[in-house]
């Protein structure tokens, strides 16, 4: 009996994580609290058992995450006894950068991309795990599992190292780093199925519940705190909604849904007719926008 596709994907991810632990001096796992991060963390626990993962978690906090995400993050890190680093771009905080006042592009650049670069430089990490998958977006489909970054954190898509078999070249010079994507070959359905099969804990924002929301430019935005500027006469309404991805709450559109259990969510995901990233404002800017952002250092 040969392995099923999920068993093979799991084994591949574990192999990648161990390779980083064995060869990189100061690795870190980027933890974004979403379902992909949850799976990645679960894989890390498996990869090194009975040891703990030999690296800390890093969360880049834009200060605009759903409150529940932050609670989930802190509870989980304590429960597992893992080191959790939280980085906030204090320059951005001082300037009062936020998605409502500065727009999604500027906010994402300052509070996410710049903040990430700050954190990686500050702690001198030479390898950072990310939960990105190749099925998410066209330019991701061509990115290596071990993706080289210059000392300026830049990705050069035309000058990537060939990556053969499961032999990964982890060698870098001082100041340079690797982004490592152990779940490159997973698809969205694989992620859900694995969460189901392994009983992995995810934030309840993924499940439908009555939540206060307003509608903006076709996106359903949750009023997670009092920082949402309401138009005159605009009132948040309670709706049964859930989130397909988790990010900054003003940039993450909810979908109306009755899915309150994991099988319900998977069913809905399979029957849905729009792709996962559609709920994210960031991908719509330009046709090749993700490729450009990645060259500049976005995960």
């Amino acid at each position: 009996m040969s392995l099923t596709h999920l068993e093979l994907l799991e084994a591949e991810s574990i192999h990648i994580m161990r390779e980083v632990a064995a060869e990189c001096e100061n690795p870190v796992m980027l933890y974004s609290i979403g379902k992909d991060s949850s799976v990645m963390l679960h894989l890390a626990l498996k990869a090194f058992y009975p040891s703990k993962p030999p690296f800390p978690l890093l969360h880049v906090d834009t200060t605009w995450k759903f409150r529940e995400m932050i609670e989930f993050r802190d509870t989980l890190a304590t429960k597992l006894g893992l080191e959790l680093l939280v980085h906030i771009n204090e320059d951005g905080v001082r300037e009062g950068v936020g998605p409502f006042s500065h727009g999604s592009a500027y906010h994402t650049d300052v509070m996410k991309t710049q903040a990430l670069k700050q954190a990686l430089s500050k702690y001198k990490f030479d390898a950072a795990f990310g939960g990105a998958r190749r099925d998410e977006e066209k330019s991701r489909a061509k990115e290596r599992i071990f993706s080289f970054r210059s000392a300026q954190h830049r990705w050069d898509p035309k000058n990537q190292r060939p990556e053969l078999w499961n032999i990964y070249n982890t060698r870098i010079s001082k100041g340079e780093s690797m982004r490592v994507f152990p779940m490159s070959n997973w698809t969205e359905l694989d992620i859900w199925q694995y969460i189901h099969l392994e009983n992995i804990e995810i934030p309840s924002l993924y499940f439908a519940a009555k939540r206060p929301v307003v509608e903006r430019d076709g996106l359903i935005i949750m009023v997670d705190d009092n920082r949402v500027p309401l138009e005159p006469g605009e009132e948040p309404v309670e709706k049964m909604v859930r989130f397909r991805t988790l990010g900054c709450y003003p940039l993450t559109g909810a979908v109306e849904s009755e899915a309150t259990t994991l099988p319900d969510i998977i069913q809905e995901t399979l029957l849905t007719t729009s792709s996962e990233r559609q709920g994210r404002a960031i991908d719509k800017d330009a046709s090749a926008s993700m490729e450009k952002k990645k060259q500049e250092g976005y995960f």
Partner: peptide, 10 residues
């Protein structure tokens, strides 16, 4: 459906 999916080969 999920049970059937689980045993897919690759």
């Amino acid at each position: 459906y999920l049970e059937a999916q689980r045993n897919k080969s690759y």
